[in-house]
Nucleic acid binder design. Sequence first.
DNA 1: CAGTGTGAAGATGTTCACAGCG
DNA 2: CGCTGTGAACATCTTCACACTG
Lengths: 208, 208
Amino acid sequence: MKKLKIPEKTIERLPLYLRRSEKLHAMGENSVTSQKFVRDLPGINSDNLRKDLSYFGNYGKKGNGYDMSRLIKELRNILKLNKETHVALVGAGNLGTALLTHQDFNRWGFRITVAFDNRPKVIGNQIGGILVEPIQDLESTVRKKKIEAGMIAVPADSAQSVSDSLTSAGIKGILNFAPTLLDVPDEVKVKQVDITSTLKELNYYLQE
Amino acid sequence: MKKLKIPEKTIERLPLYLRRSEKLHAMGENSVTSQKFVRDLPGINSDNLRKDLSYFGNYGKKGNGYDMSRLIKELRNILKLNKETHVALVGAGNLGTALLTHQDFNRWGFRITVAFDNRPKVIGNQIGGILVEPIQDLESTVRKKKIEAGMIAVPADSAQSVSDSLTSAGIKGILNFAPTLLDVPDEVKVKQVDITSTLKELNYYLQE
DNA sequence: CAGTGTGAAGATGTTCACAGCG
DNA sequence: CGCTGTGAACATCTTCACACTG
């Protein structure tokens, strides 16, 4: 087991491993070898799995495999999914609504605590049990409620200004759905979910 | 200029370059150096850009930079965005609705031509100008309308069966929003858009 | 002579192969 | 003796540095 400097690629695979562990656990499997584990995980082989896990500890039993309940616990722990993370949603349009009503987040400790929009028609609505507040209140509310992450689901041209408000309110992570590259301070981590770009990428492969 | 074996990472960046070229073009810039081009493209430097482009041709003028209108044309061409790609959407829930009403796709030649759902309440509705058809009709309609790509926005437990229908109807590319790893024939390219996984990944970086 | 295009060096990520433990 | 954990070999991707051209 090595400490520190864990490859980004490894981190990217951890949620996948967690999902797979839970599935195997639900199927009643207990001791699972790395070989068996990665069946159905396209593009990942047993070496990848073993090496990835080895960065964090010795979770396997030699000659046996990995104990699913143990692995689930370890992965949730590594990904810090045991504590609740409070998330702010900005932009309560179609996508924002989908996110607000997406029940799956809760299972993983993500709680969308507040939502903001700038359109009078939308402000004051309850969506998925969350009140949509005016964008002007963003900074003070985020600060007051100790929100840690933000999701940006606004049109491209306002994404940067929303991002600025979020970061100046002290947010440390942003999930950006707008097709814009955000300029943020170094200590803020941004993950881009750019559906149109992904579709373009897919398109490249579409016509051999 | 080299031919073939273009790195995946390069392909991933092309949509970004296209977006940036269009922005610069709109700003009236014409000849743009690689240095200037990559300002605002976080994580990408001028070497990346020049090398990436060099896989496809010599688009720059030495001592000058790149001509934006030329570059836009070349990139659209490489990504095959000049022809229309017909897309089927499966699952007309909140996310599906967001996708159906997402105008941005059209700009890039993606046309969602048909939508499917299995819930009687939803079937027959028009969303974003598209009629939601019963899932039973998927294979025949997809075949008849020569749909090339599918978007899966159904719950995790039905994603694989939808994927099977899509591929057996001859689809060559899938954008999967369900948190499931799809098992598809080799010739089918899948791109995963897994919001919860991305959020978990972000969460890892969130606490120091 | 500024800035592209590109081999070569360096960094990061993956696969191999096997020592060692249960 | 089977399977993990891990150095070492290999492959891919990024950065460097500079020859070359418009």
